[in-house]
Simulated scan of single mutants.
Amino acid sequence: MRRILVIGSPGAGKTTLARRIAERLSLPLVHLDREYWRAGWVKPADDEWEIQAAALAEKPSWVMDGEYLDLSGKLLARATTVIWLDLPNWLCLSRALKRLALHYRKERTDLAEGCPEYFNRDYVTFIKDIWTYPARIRPKMIELLRNLRPDQNCVILRSRREVEDFAARLPSTLQGAA
């Protein structure tokens, strides 16, 4: 596990798990939310994100959390392990709302500067996205994971217990890490 991509619905716990993995394996941590967004929640141009994602993917080792997969698929292609947090939408939604309440109008370290937590019309869309994730995004994720190469590991975690058990089994260091 040298390049680990943690994916899943907003609120699934990607950032928390990625932090734990990076710490335990002594790997660099990359929050894709922080890399993707520009101040004021502005999306980058597709070509700009492609260049940035390609540069991130080329690093020799990393733990990344998020689902801002680049159009060319370089992030997924470079991952040696993909961990999909396939948790229930009700759990993801409750976590996202709790996070909003805890960090309202504050910037988090896993988000770009100038992107505080907020509640507005966009957040209502975000809530709908979480609720409809199983129907809209889950089938796409299943297809992406089916197409991983044989040399790529895939871990699917479907409950809080599975996530905790996985994290507890992580080695304390990555042997032979560069």
Score class of each variant (00 low, 15 high):
A96R: 01
G176Q: 11
W90A: 11
I127T: 06
K128N: 04
E67Y: 10
L111E: 11
R105Y: 06
L87I: 03
R158M: 00
A53Q: 07
N120K: 00
P139H: 02
G66L: 01
S72C: 10
V163H: 00
P134C: 04
S26N: 10
D47A: 15
K128C: 03
R146Q: 14
Y123H: 03
L174G: 12
A55F: 02
L170S: 13
F126Y: 07
W84D: 02
G114Q: 14
I83Y: 00
T15A: 13
P134V: 04
W49N: 14
F119I: 03
R160F: 03
W62V: 13
Y133M: 03
D122Q: 12
A77I: 03
A45E: 14
V155W: 05
P150V: 04
Y118H: 14
W62S: 15
W62A: 15
P171W: 09
V82S: 03
L75H: 10
G40I: 09
A178T: 08
P44F: 12
R105C: 14
D110Q: 12
E107K: 12
A101H: 09
E67R: 11
A45S: 10
W131A: 10
W90P: 01
G8S: 08
A12G: 09
R38L: 15
V42N: 13
R149T: 06
A101R: 13
V30A: 05
A12I: 00
Y68A: 02
A96H: 00
A167G: 11
V42Y: 04
E107S: 08
D129A: 07
T16V: 07
C92A: 06
A45H: 14
K43D: 15
